[in-house]
Simulated assay, not measured.
Amino acid sequence: MSFPVLTTGLANSIVFGSYSNALDYLSQSDCNLPSHCKQASSVQVFAAGCFSGIVQVLVCAPIDLVKVRLQGQTTGERYRGPIHCVAVILREEGLRGLYRGGVALALRDVPCYGLYFLPYEVTRKALTETGKAPGTFAILMAGGVAGVVTWACATPMDVVKARLQMSGAGGRQYSGVLHCIGVSLKEEGGRVFFKGLLLNSVRAFPVNAITFLTYESLLKILCPPGK
Score class of each variant (00 low, 15 high):
residue 3 F to P: 02
residue 5 V to H: 06
residue 7 T to I: 13
residue 7 T to A: 04
residue 8 T to D: 02
residue 9 G to D: 12
residue 10 L to K: 03
residue 12 N to S: 02
residue 13 S to H: 10
residue 15 V to F: 14
residue 15 V to W: 02
residue 16 F to D: 11
residue 18 S to R: 11
residue 21 N to Y: 13
residue 22 A to R: 12
residue 22 A to M: 13
residue 23 L to A: 08
residue 24 D to R: 14
residue 25 Y to S: 12
residue 27 S to H: 13
residue 28 Q to H: 15
residue 30 D to P: 05
residue 33 L to D: 14
residue 34 P to K: 15
residue 36 H to T: 15
residue 36 H to N: 14
residue 37 C to I: 11
residue 39 Q to C: 11
residue 41 S to A: 09
residue 42 S to A: 15
residue 45 V to L: 09
residue 48 A to D: 05
residue 50 C to H: 08
residue 51 F to W: 12
residue 56 Q to R: 13
residue 56 Q to L: 09
residue 58 L to C: 15
residue 58 L to N: 06
residue 58 L to T: 11
residue 59 V to Y: 01
residue 60 C to V: 06
residue 61 A to Y: 02
residue 62 P to E: 05
residue 63 I to V: 15
residue 63 I to Y: 06
residue 63 I to C: 00
residue 64 D to E: 12
residue 64 D to Q: 13
residue 65 L to Y: 03
residue 65 L to T: 02
residue 66 V to N: 02
residue 68 V to S: 00
residue 68 V to D: 04
residue 69 R to V: 03
residue 70 L to K: 06
residue 73 Q to K: 02
residue 73 Q to V: 11
residue 75 T to K: 10
residue 75 T to M: 08
residue 76 G to F: 06
residue 80 R to F: 05
residue 80 R to D: 08
residue 81 G to I: 08
residue 82 P to W: 05
residue 83 I to D: 07
residue 84 H to D: 14
residue 84 H to F: 07
residue 85 C to V: 01
residue 90 L to A: 06
residue 90 L to Y: 07
residue 91 R to D: 00
residue 91 R to L: 02
residue 93 E to V: 00
residue 94 G to L: 00
residue 95 L to W: 11
residue 97 G to I: 00
residue 98 L to N: 04
residue 102 G to R: 02
residue 102 G to H: 06
residue 106 A to Q: 03
residue 107 L to M: 15
residue 109 D to C: 13
residue 109 D to Y: 05
residue 111 P to W: 07
residue 114 G to W: 08
residue 114 G to E: 04
residue 115 L to D: 03
residue 115 L to A: 10
residue 117 F to T: 07
residue 121 E to C: 04
residue 129 E to A: 15
residue 131 G to R: 08
residue 132 K to W: 02
residue 133 A to W: 09
residue 134 P to M: 08
residue 135 G to F: 09
residue 137 F to S: 12
residue 138 A to K: 03
residue 140 L to D: 04
residue 141 M to G: 01
residue 144 G to W: 02
residue 144 G to S: 00
residue 145 V to R: 00
residue 145 V to I: 03
residue 146 A to W: 00
residue 148 V to N: 01
residue 149 V to I: 04
residue 150 T to Q: 04
residue 151 W to S: 00
residue 153 C to D: 01
residue 158 D to Q: 12
residue 160 V to G: 08
residue 162 A to P: 05
residue 162 A to G: 04
residue 163 R to G: 07
residue 164 L to T: 08
residue 165 Q to N: 07
residue 166 M to V: 09
residue 167 S to G: 14
residue 167 S to N: 11
residue 169 A to L: 06
residue 169 A to V: 07
residue 172 R to L: 14
residue 178 L to G: 07
residue 180 C to W: 10
residue 182 G to M: 14
residue 185 L to I: 11
residue 186 K to H: 14
residue 186 K to R: 15
residue 188 E to H: 14
residue 188 E to P: 06
residue 188 E to Y: 10
residue 189 G to Q: 12
residue 192 V to W: 13
residue 192 V to F: 10
residue 192 V to C: 12
residue 194 F to Y: 15
residue 195 K to V: 13
residue 200 N to F: 05
residue 200 N to M: 05
residue 202 V to M: 08
residue 205 F to D: 00
residue 209 A to F: 01
residue 211 T to A: 09
residue 212 F to A: 00
residue 212 F to V: 02
residue 214 T to Y: 07
residue 214 T to R: 01
residue 215 Y to C: 08
residue 215 Y to S: 05
residue 216 E to M: 11
residue 226 G to N: 10
